[in-house]
Amino acid sequence: MLYIKCPHCGWRSQNEFSYGGDATVKRPELGKEVSDQEWDDFVYNRKSLRGKHWELWQHLSGCRQWIKVERDTATHEIFKTLKANEEIS
């Protein structure tokens, strides 16, 4: 079970969180014309990286904040966690 540092609450076990997918995906602006390809890339196409990966988790059984987590998908090592409003560097 992973041990995740919630930027709001501190270290918590994985079972308090729910996974939310790739954190680097940006939703196209509302009302903006987007091509089929751009839309598909937003809705469906994911890289499924091996290695370092920025992903979203929600601290569901805690502060309910969505957070950004940089995790190695092969080793589960977690390098950094950010609040929702902090930019991935």
Binding site: R27, Q58, Q65, W66, A84, N85
Partner: peptide
């Protein structure tokens, strides 16, 4: 609820 929180916190803060 999670859905609304997602959009409010991440997409349209």
């Amino acid at each position: 609820l999670s859905h609304l929180e997602y959009y409010l916190q991440l997409v349209w803060p």
